[in-house]
Each structure stands twice: as C-alpha cells, then as structure tokens.
C-alpha cells in the first residue's frame, strides 16, 4: 500500500488512542476528587505532568485549576495533544484515506469530531463532566470496534493496530511514571484507606482496577507496577501492547517472529525480548523512573524506524513526522 496511506492510518489510530487516554485521565481524576479531602494539595497538575507538556500549559494558563486544565486538555486547539486537536487530526488523516477505511468508520469519526467541535461542547463538559468524558471514551471504543469489524484485517489494519498499541504502551508508561513517585508510601499513610483510593485511581486511569484485583488482591506499588508493565494478558500493559504491535508488524511482511527482515522488526523484537526477560524487582532495583524513561525513548525509536522503513520518512532528530 501507499506509504502516505500507511502513515495516515497509523497516525489516525494513534490520535484516537491518545484522545481516549486523555479523556480517561480526566474522568478518573474527577472521580478521585470526590473522595479526597478538600485541602489535599493540587490534583490537576499531575494530569498535565502525564502528558509531559507542563511547559506549554504554564506558558498559556495561570494556574493548575480544574477549569483551566480541563480546557487545556480538552478544547485547546493550539495544544497538539488536546482531545479536540487529536480527534481533528485523526479525522484529517481519515479524510486523506477515506477510500481505505470503511464508510462506517469515516462517518463515525466525522460525527465524533463535529459534535466535539460544536460550540456547545465546552458548556456540556463543565455541566456534566463525567458524562461528557465517558462519551468521548465510548466514541473512541466504538471507533476501534468499527475498525475491527468493518475493515479487512490486511496491511492497513495492521498499521492501524501498531499505531494504537505503541500509543497505548507509551501512555501506560506515563501514567505509571508520574503516579509512582507521587504515591510512594509515606510511613504514616501506608495501608490507610486514603492510600488505597489513590492506587485504585492509578489503576482506573488504565482501566485496570478490576482486572488487577483478579490477579493481586492488594494494591502495593510493586504489584501495580508489575501489572501495568508486565502482565501478559491485560490489554493496556506495556508488555502486552508491545507484543501485539510486533505480531502486527510481522503480519505486514509475512516474516516469521524471531527472523526479523527489516529494521522495524528488529527494533521492536529487541524491545519485546527485553520486556520478556525483565521482571519488576529488577526494575525497582534499577529505578522505576529511569526504566520507564528508557522505555519511552525506545518506543519513540520504534516509531521512527517504522517511519523510515515503511512511510518513506527521512530519519530526523524529531521523534516523528506528525507529532507536535
């Protein structure tokens, strides 16, 4: 298929996944605040920290206050990772490949964008934020579902899945990175209900609470990190995402796993192997932040190599062609 088309479909899915993640973060945070004592510090700053875009926020907004953060993350068209900007970018990508995706996918995404861009949306988001952000999440899921059942699982679909999986792995690593440090137990808070609420919120941010409970009963920092990085079956764990992305990549070329044929397959294969042969205790020993930071860098490298291998994009110092 055309390199430009593959690039567009890959980014279309990354943007949808990104939008969904941001909506989920906001949703979880709103929920968490209901259970928090009022005076307990600022709960909106970490949300911006997860995106890694504090500098952009601070340049344009005076405080980490609910309304401002929500506007920044949801409706700010000047901010490239705002939900609206992501959905708009997904739609522009979809428009350039309308003949590749199904009409159902296009119509859904088009409608998703038009409603989000409607001038009433910001008021709706403030009036009933729970419902508003839930709708955004469900629209993203619906899009993913439509892609799964109305589009052939050929080359284009595999590129779409790779985009989605890499984006998801990156977001999970960011949630964990930010929260892990903030929530490292202080002696006086260990095993108090307060602590528990916070860890539950982290898991919820990755839609992971219930599945986590089935494997571990207690939310210790070690267990949460183990689950979010290494669980084999949980769909948002980093290991799972990377291994799914790799399977899709091999399907594109028809090459056997273990016998990589191009730089992208090599790079992703190495990352998968590292995730398979590392465990949580090693990670904690080495330093959680350093580990996650390294992981994010490697995910960016995979993205770059996919660009040079398939999308005809010249390698640059930037992590990728479309982002920011």
């Amino acid at each position: 298929m055309l390199s430009r088309v593959a690039n567009s479909i890959y980014w279309m899915c990354r943007y949808i996944e990104r939008a969904e993640n941001v909506a989920r973060f906001i949703s979880v945070n709103l929920n968490l605040l209901l259970d928090m004592p009022l005076e307990k510090g600022n709960h909106w700053e970490p949300l911006v920290m997860i995106t890694g875009d504090q500098a952009i926020f601070e340049k344009h907004y005076p405080d980490y206050e609910k309304k401002q953060v929500m506007h920044f993350l949801t409706f700010d068209r000047k901010y490239p990772n705002a939900i609206l900007t992501c959905v708009a970018a997904a739609r522009e990508n979809a428009r350039s490949i309308r003949e590749i995706i199904s009409s159902d996918m296009w119509e859904h995404l088009n409608n998703f964008y038009l409603e989000l861009a409607d001038k009433c949306s910001p008021d709706m988001a403030l009036a009933d934020p729970q419902r508003f952000f839930k709708i955004i999440q469900m629209r993203s899921h619906l899009f993913t579902g439509l892609m799964d059942c109305s589009m052939s699982h050929g080359e284009a679909w595999n590129f779409a899945r790779i985009g989605m999986m890499l984006e998801r792995a990156d977001k999970t690593s960011r949630i964990l990175d930010v929260k892990y440090f903030m929530l490292l137990p202080r002696a006086d808070l260990i095993n108090t209900p307060f602590d528990n609420i916070q860890w539950s919120a982290v898991l919820k941010s990755a839609s992971a609470l219930e599945m986590f409970r089935k494997r571990y009963h207690h939310a210790t920092p070690r267990n949460v990190a183990d689950f979010l990085i290494f669980d084999d079956n949980f769909p948002r764990s980093i290991r799972h995402c990377v291994s799914k992305a790799k399977a899709c990549l091999h399907r594109i070329n028809g090459s056997m796993p273990g016998l990589p044929q191009n730089p992208a397959e090599k790079q992703l294969g190495r990352l998968e192997a590292d995730l398979a042969y590392t465990d949580i205790d090693e990670v904690i020993g080495q330093g959680m932040h350093e580990y996650l930071d390294g992981l994010q860098t490697r995910l960016n490298q995979v993205d770059m190599v996919i660009g040079t291998t398939f999308f005809n994009i010249e390698p640059t110092t930037e992590s990728c062609a479309q982002e920011q």
Binding site: M1, L2, S3, R4, A6, R98, E99, I252, F311, N312
Partner: peptide, 29 residues
C-alpha cells in the same frame, strides 16, 4: 476519494509518485 473508493483503485497525490526508468511508480510500504 469517493471515485477511487467506488472503483477500488489507489488514490494518489503527486508526492506519492516518482518517475524511475521512464515509468511512473508509487511509493509503497
């Protein structure tokens, strides 16, 4: 886009094409 979808053929832009050995080619994956 509509016509290429209805015909099931490629939709290409100028940037997707190069001329090589006297023939026109698409840049594909």
């Amino acid at each position: 886009s509509f016509l290429s979808q209805q015909m099931g053929v490629e939709l290409v832009e100028g940037q997707d094409l190069v001329v090589h050995d006297g023939c026109v080619h698409m840049l594909t994956t």
